[in-house]
Write a protein that binds this DNA or RNA. Structure first.
Lengths: 262, 262
DNA sequence: CGAGATTGTTTCAGGGGGTGGAACTGACTT
DNA sequence: AAGTCAGTTCCACCCCCTGAAACAATCTCG
C-alpha cells in the first residue's frame, strides 16, 4: 500500500499534509499535522514550508495552517454549484442505483429552483432532463424543500395551478412546509403533471441547509415507496451533508436559523 | 532563486505543475505542462500521476488536466465572496495607498449591496465601516455599478430620498446607468449623506461583471478628483478582472500594465 | 523568576528516493 | 506499412530527501 506509490514519496507526503489542511474547517496546528501523518517534525516543517512558498497553504494569525491563495483563487473564479455537483455525484449515483429513478440536485436561484446535477433513470419511462425546464418551485419537491428551509422567498396568494393536485395557495404551501420540516423530506404527487411524482430531502452545508437532492418518476412506480425513498434520501443527504459540512466537530445543530452576515 | 528552495525539489516541481493547472481556465495538456516547466517528460508523468492519485488534479474526458476533487471540495464548502475578497485584497490596498481613502469591494445580494472587503482610510475623517450598515443601493456608487451591469434588479417609481441629491426615481436611475456604462465608473456625491461621496468601477470575472470596487470619503476631498480616482479604479478593477478572469488566453490588454494616476 | 517542558526550525551526514535517458506502447498520419 | 508523435515504464546513477540531534523560541509552574 504505502509502498505502491512508485517514486514520489515526498510529493505523496506533501499531498497528505495538504489534504488534511484543506479538509479541516479550522486552522490546523503543526503538531497535529505531524502527528496525524506520522512524519518526523523536521520533515513536516520542510514540506509545509514548501507548500507555503507555493501558495498551497497559508498561516493564519495564530500560526495555524489553512488552505492557501491558490485554493482561494480557484473558489473565486468558479461557480460554487458545479463544484457542489461534482462532490455530490457519488451520492446521486448511489441514490440512482438504489431507486432506479432519475436523481437531481437542486439549488435556489432567484425565486426558482436550478438543477445543477442529475443522474438518469435506468427506466425507459422516466422524468426528462430538467436542466433546461422552468418548473414552478411550488410544484417541485426540491422547491418545497428549499421553501421549507428559507432558501426561497415563500409566495403568497394563489399559485399557478398545474394539476388538480397542485398546492393552491401560499397559505396551503406554508402549512405543508411544517410537515416537510418534521419528516425531513418533501413530496409532490401528480402536482406538476398528472402521473409524475417526486421526493426530495435537504442537504446541509456548514451554514445550514444549502440545497436539496431528490428523485422523480412515474407516480405508478413511486407512490408505494414514498416513505422508503424518503428515508433513503434523508440518509444519503446526510452523507452529503457530512462531506460538505466537513468536520463539524461536534455540533448536531437542529434549527436552521442561520442569519447572514448582513 | 530556483536553487534557494532547500530540500524540496520534487514538491516544488509538483507544485509548479499544480499551479499551472489550477490557474488555467481550460484543461492543460501533458506536453504543455512538460514544456512550460521544463521538466523531463518522465518526471512530469510521475509527478502528475502522484497529483492525480492524491485528488489534486484530475483528467477530463480528452486527457487534459484540470483542478481535482480537493479543489472542488474547497470551493463547494466555502462562500465564494470571501475568497474573492482575499484575491482582491492587494488591489484594494493599492487603491487605498494611492487615494488615501477607504476602499470597498461590493457584491450583489438580494436587492442590495453586500460589502465583503474593505481597507480603511488613513484619514481621521473617513467613511465608517460599511460592513454592517444597510445602505440603499441607489445611493451607493457600488450599487449603481451593480445596477448598470444587471447584477441587481432595477427599481421603478420613486426611490428613498436620503438627501436633496439622491437619485429621485427609477427612471432617473436608468438614465444615469447609461453614463456609468460609458465611462466605466459610477459616482455618488452627497446622495447618501451630505458631505459623503463615493466612486466605483466594475470588476469582471469569467462570466462578465461580477462585483465592484470603489472608494468613499468626504466630498471636500473627493470632488476635485472624481475623474482621477475614476480612472484609477477602472484601471485597478481591470487588474483584478485579469486575475479573476484568469488567462483569457491571449489578451495583450492595451493599457501598458502600470499607469500611475497619482 | 528561572528551570524545565513544549513547540517548531535548522543542520548535516548517510542512504534511500528521485531523476532523466532510453526503451516501449499506442494512437494518429502519410 | 512505415513513420511520427504523445505519454508511460524501466533502471542505474547520484542527488535530494530524510530524521536524529542541536538549536531557538515560547509556554508553564514551582
Amino acid at each position: 500500500m504505502s509502498s505502491s506509490s512508485g517514486g514520489t514519496q515526498a510529493v505523496d507526503r506533501a499531498a497528505a499534509l495538504l489534504d488534511l489542511v484543506v479538509r479541516a474547517d479550522e486552522p490546523v496546528r503543526f503538531t497535529d499535522l505531524s502527528d496525524e501523518t506520522g512524519l518526523a517534525r523536521s520533515t513536516t516543517s520542510r514540506l509545509l514550508a514548501a507548500l507555503e512558498r507555493t501558495d498551497l497553504v497559508e498561516r493564519d494569525g495564530s500560526g495555524g495552517y489553512v488552505a492557501g491563495p491558490l485554493f482561494a483563487l480557484h473558489a473565486a473564479v468558479h461557480d460554487p454549484w458545479p463544484q457542489v455537483a461534482r462532490v455530490a455525484r457519488p451520492v446521486l449515483e448511489t441514490v440512482a442505483e438504489r431507486t432506479g429513478e432519475t436523481v437531481h440536485l437542486g439549488v435556489p436561484r432567484g425565486a426558482g429552483v436550478l438543477h445543477v446535477g442529475q443522474v438518469e433513470s435506468a427506466y425507459l419511462l422516466s422524468a426528462r432532463d430538467w436542466n433546461q425546464v422552468d418548473v414552478p418551485a411550488h410544484c417541485s419537491s426540491l422547491g418545497k424543500v428549499l421553501y421549507a428551509y428559507d432558501l426561497l422567498p415563500i409566495p403568497s396568494g394563489r399559485l399557478e395551478r398545474r394539476t388538480d393536485h397542485t398546492v393552491p395557495t401560499g397559505d396551503a404551501l406554508q402549512r405543508e412546509l411544517a410537515t416537510i420540516r418534521r419528516q425531513r423530506y418533501a413530496t409532490t404527487i401528480d402536482e406538476l403533471e398528472t402521473g409524475l411524482s417526486a421526493i426530495a430531502a435537504p442537504v446541509e452545508g456548514r451554514d445550514g441547509v444549502m440545497c436539496a437532492i431528490g428523485v422523480s418518476g412515474p407516480t405508478a412506480r413511486l407512490q408505494d415507496r414514498v416513505a422508503d425513498f424518503g428515508r433513503l434520501l434523508v440518509q444519503q443527504a446526510g452523507e452529503l451533508s457530512a462531506l460538505l459540512g466537513l468536520s463539524r466537530s461536534t455540533q448536531p445543530r437542529e434549527s436552521p436559523t442561520e442569519e447572514g452576515v448582513a
